[in-house]
Design a protein around this nucleic acid. Sequence first.
DNA 1: ATTTAATGCTTTCTAAAAAAACGCAATATG
DNA 2: CATATTGCGTTTTTTTAGAAAGCATTAAAT
Lengths: 144, 144
Amino acid sequence: MLSKKTQYAFQALMYLAQKKNNEPVLIAEISKKKKIPLKFLENILLELKKAEILDSKKGKGGGYFFAKNPKDVQLATVMRLLDGPISLLSCVSLYFYEKCNNCDERGCGLHLIMEQVRDANLKILEKKTIADIATKQNHIVKSV
Amino acid sequence: MLSKKTQYAFQALMYLAQKKNNEPVLIAEISKKKKIPLKFLENILLELKKAEILDSKKGKGGGYFFAKNPKDVQLATVMRLLDGPISLLSCVSLYFYEKCNNCDERGCGLHLIMEQVRDANLKILEKKTIADIATKQNHIVKSV
DNA sequence: ATTTAATGCTTTCTAAAAAAACGCAATATG
DNA sequence: CATATTGCGTTTTTTTAGAAAGCATTAAAT
């Protein structure tokens, strides 16, 4: 499961992406609209800024805004930044690889399958971007 | 990432599946061979038994063995049992569904994509079984 | 029956991580 | 200068993971 941190990040990014003209938005506004604890959100946005996904301006008229085009921000990037590995096992991770202790990787059936799982995930998460999730897709109406 | 608990479970299940004739195996033996803390393993095996994946016999000559054929035990089943949801968001989980607080699901772009991710995962994890991972696939030799 | 070899089960402990709050510093605007 | 805002290290709280302890129960062998 995604941590709250990453979930909040996605909500904040969606909110920012929906603003016109990429104008600075107050942390407090995002916090209120998206019901995210203010101080927690502050930290999250700061991390996103350090990763050069967002940028910010201090003082009056300041706030947070995108440093790059939302369509160039992969979901996978945000997840790795805030939650770490996307893979289910670190011995299969591309960005956070660690050898597993009692497993030789060759000849480990679990390893092979977890690579498949990883690839299936990345195929989606590296393709889809903040722009994709920010666009409300109300035209797809589910019949209940 | 999979918890240690689930990783240990997979290792133990692989070990049991590789035994001939489904004979009872001591917890202590699995613990030693797979380097899993004994008391922790005890709890894990017990959970697997309660889920009717394994069975056990007490007393001399006792131990753990499969209650069903390893080829009928999906990886997804084990993961759900020990780690909970496979989905990345609970609002998208089939077995552990919970409504998300600030999201209406229809019209939430994240929701739709996380459903795709879930399905991609389940396609693999509900198809592959303990029998699949227990079979060492040494014939696939990676060239280093 | 008694002994011994095993698992069964509840509880507790510890450590780490996640989630959140605090307080003041730094900076930009007007 | 006054005010609005983010920056950022520290601290606190809560939750979860990981592991251990200890006694109860069951089965088999003798």
